[in-house]
Simulated assay, not measured.
Amino acid sequence: MENQTVNEGKTAAIIAYFTIIGTLVAFIMNNSKKNSFTSFHIRQFFGIFIMGMINKYLVFDMLGKFIGGIVFLFLVILWFIGFIGAIKGEEKQVPVVGEYFQRWFNGI
């Protein structure tokens, strides 16, 4: 990845990891001039967010608080890995599911 692309998109990529509102702000910031680095991190966080909603509304209700808590801890670790990648200027996919997020949300 070009250093200029990373530098131009780094702020929006970091903002994307702060709640879904931050993701919307980053998406709007990235909408006029598509930056591949920012888009990558928006897709990563959006996938983590969707998994969090599934955990909240399905796993907690169907499998209980213990399993839901384990999934929540896993999601926090994924968030941390993605956030640190954005700060460092790396396009490093989050473990296990990052590849799927890039494919599923390719239009972002």
Rank of each mutant, 00 (worst) to 15 (best):
M1E: 13
E2S: 15
E2T: 14
N3F: 06
N3E: 15
N3S: 15
N3V: 14
Q4S: 13
T5D: 14
T5V: 12
V6Q: 01
E8T: 08
E8Q: 15
G9C: 06
G9I: 01
K10N: 03
K10L: 03
T11C: 00
T11H: 00
I14H: 02
I15D: 07
I15A: 10
I15N: 08
I15F: 08
Y17P: 02
T19H: 12
I20V: 15
I20K: 01
I20F: 15
I20E: 03
I21N: 07
G22D: 11
G22R: 09
T23Y: 08
T23A: 15
L24Q: 09
V25K: 11
A26P: 05
F27N: 10
F27C: 00
F27D: 09
I28T: 10
I28W: 13
M29C: 06
N30S: 07
N30M: 04
N31W: 10
N31A: 15
N31L: 12
S32E: 15
K33Q: 14
K33M: 04
K34R: 14
N35C: 10
N35P: 05
N35Y: 05
T38W: 01
T38A: 12
S39Y: 02
F40Q: 05
Q44E: 12
Q44P: 07
F45P: 04
F45I: 13
F45W: 11
F46A: 10
F46M: 13
I48D: 05
F49G: 09
F49C: 07
M51V: 02
M51E: 06
M51H: 02
M51N: 14
M53W: 14
I54E: 06
N55F: 05
N55P: 09
Y57M: 14
L58I: 15
L58E: 04
V59D: 08
F60K: 08
F60T: 00
F60W: 06
F60D: 09
D61F: 09
D61A: 12
M62A: 14
M62I: 14
M62E: 06
L63Q: 09
K65R: 10
I67D: 10
G68F: 03
G68K: 05
G69T: 02
V71A: 11
V71F: 11
F72W: 11
F72E: 14
L73P: 01
L73K: 02
L75P: 08
V76P: 02
F80A: 15
F80E: 00
I81P: 01
G82P: 06
G82V: 01
G85T: 04
A86K: 03
A86W: 03
I87R: 00
I87H: 06
G89H: 05
G89M: 07
Q93A: 13
V96L: 15
V97S: 09
Y100D: 05
F101Q: 04
Q102L: 13
R103F: 04
R103I: 04
F105C: 03
F105G: 06
N106D: 13
N106M: 00
N106W: 00
G107L: 11
I108Q: 03
